[in-house]
C-alpha cells in the first residue's frame, strides 16, 4: 500500500535554494538520461536528495499509518481465511515501511528523525489513511482499490533513478500483487454475496470514491510544473496520467461485479484516453493533508501510543557505545 506520490509544492517552496556545481549537475543529468541508477555514495543535487527523502519518508509513513485502518479489523475478520490473509497483509505493510526507512536512511536521515517528524506533523503520509474503515466492506475496498492505485504508482516509481528506492519497490510490488489478489477476492465475495453484503460493499465504495479520486493528487492543471523531478526520474508520471491508468483498469472491474460508481459524471474519452469526473472537492484534499481529516488525530494518537509505550523498551536495548552509521545501500 502507499500514497499517491503527491508532491506538496508549498513544502518545496520553503526549501532553501542550493546552487549545485553546474559541471557535476550536467554529468548527473547525463547519467540519469542514460538510464543509470544513482547510488548512495554518488554525487547528487541537493534538491534531488531532499525531494527523495521527502518522498521515500512519506511512503514509509504511509505504510505504518496505512496498517492501522486495516489492522483494527484483524480481530474481527469474518473467517479463518480472511483473518490469516489480513494478518499477513498488514504485517507486509509494516515490512515495507522497514525497507523504505532503510532506503531513506541511505540519503542521510535516520529512522528516528523520520518517526519524530511523523509524530510532530512535519512529515506527511497518504491522505487516504485519514479516512475511517467503518465496516468490513471498507477493508475490502482498501485492500482492492487503494492497493491497486498504490501499485500503479509504485510500479512506475520502481523504474525511477535512485537505486535503493527502486530495489525496495521491486520487492514491495511483488508482495503488493498478492495484496491486490486478496483484496479483490474479499471485495468480490461481498459484491457477489447476499443482498446485505452487496449493499455493505456498495456503501463502502460510495464512501471511498472521493478519497480514491484524491489519491493521485490534484489535476496536472492545478499542480505546479514538476518538470525537473520528472527529468531526474524522481516523479515518473503526472497525477492525471496515473489516475487515468487506474480508472481505465479498475472501473470496468468494479462494474463487472454489478456495483455502480457513485459519480454520474464519470466519463471516459477515447480520443484522449482520459477520464473526467465530478469535482472531488480539492479543498477537502488540502484540508485533510494539513491535518483536518476525519482520522488524522486518531492515527497520530496511535503512533504516539506506540512511541510513548515503547520508549522504555528502546531505552533498555540501546547500546551507548554504538555510533549511528548511514547504511550504504
Amino acid at each position: 500500500m502507499y500514497g499517491g506520490g503527491f508532491v506538496d509544492e508549498k513544502e518545496r517552496q520553503k526549501d532553501p535554494v542550493v546552487q549545485d556545481d553546474p559541471i557535476k549537475l550536467a554529468a548527473f543529468e547525463a547519467r540519469i538520461a542514460a538510464g543509470e541508477k544513482v547510488e548512495p555514495g554518488d554525487w547528487m543535487p541537493a534538491d534531488y536528495r531532499r525531494q527523495l527523502i521527502r518522498m521515500i519518508e512519506q511512503h514509509a509513513h504511509s505504510e505504518i499509518i496505512g496498517a492501522l485502518p486495516e489492522g483494527t479489523w484483524i480481530t474481527r475478520a469474518p473467517s479463518f481465511k480472511r483473518k490469516m490473509a489480513i494478518m499477513a497483509k498488514v504485517q507486509d505493510e509494516i515490512g515495507h515501511a522497514q525497507m523504505l526507512y532503510s532506503a531513506c536512511e541511505t540519503l542521510g536521515k535516520s529512522r528516528e528523525q523520520m518517526l519524530n517528524d511523523l509524530l510532530s506533523g512535519k512529515s506527511k503520509y497518504s491522505n487516504v489513511f485519514n479516512y475511517p474503515a467503518i465496516t468490513w466492506a471498507d477493508v475490502t475496498v482498501i485492500g482492492f482499490l487503494i492497493d491497486a492505485a498504490a501499485i500503479v504508482n509504485q510500479v512506475l516509481n520502481s523504474k525511477g533513478s535512485y537505486g535503493p528506492y527502486c530495489r525496495a519497490l521491486e520487492r514491495i510490488c511483488y508482495e503488493e500483487a498478492f495484496h491486490l489478489k486478496q483484496g479483490q477476492d474479499a471485495f468480490a465475495a461481498l459484491a457477489l454475496g447476499t443482498p446485505t453484503q452487496k449493499a455493505l460493499v456498495q456503501e463502502a465504495l460510495n464512501r471511498w470514491w472521493k478519497p480514491i479520486i484524491h489519491f493521485f493528487g490534484p489535476s496536472d492543471k492545478m499542480s505546479v510544473h514538476s518538470e525537473k523531478l520528472m527529468r531526474w526520474k524522481v516523479k515518473m508520471a503526472s497525477n492525471d496520467d496515473m489516475r487515468n491508468q487506474f480508472l481505465s483498469t479498475y472501473v470496468p472491474k468494479i462494474q463487472e461485479l454489478g456495483l455502480s460508481i457513485p459519480d454520474p459524471n464519470l466519463c471516459y474519452h477515447e480520443e484522449s484516453n482520459s477520464w473526467t469526473f465530478s469535482d472531488p472537492d480539492w479543498d477537502e484534499f488540502f484540508r485533510v493533508i494539513n491535518g483536518d481529516g476525519p482520522c488524522n488525530k486518531e492515527r497520530l494518537a496511535v503512533r504516539w501510543w506506540a512511541e510513548e509505550h515503547g520508549r522504555w523498551v528502546r531505552n533498555a536495548i540501546i547500546n551507548p557505545n554504538e555510533r549511528y552509521v548511514v547504511p550504504l545501500a
Partner: peptide, 14 residues
C-alpha cells in the same frame, strides 16, 4: 495480532 502496528520497534510488529 493486536501488536501489529503499535510495537516498540517496527521489527517487533513484524
Amino acid at each position: 495480532s493486536e501488536w501489529i502496528g503499535i510495537g516498540p520497534i517496527i521489527e517487533e510488529d513484524i
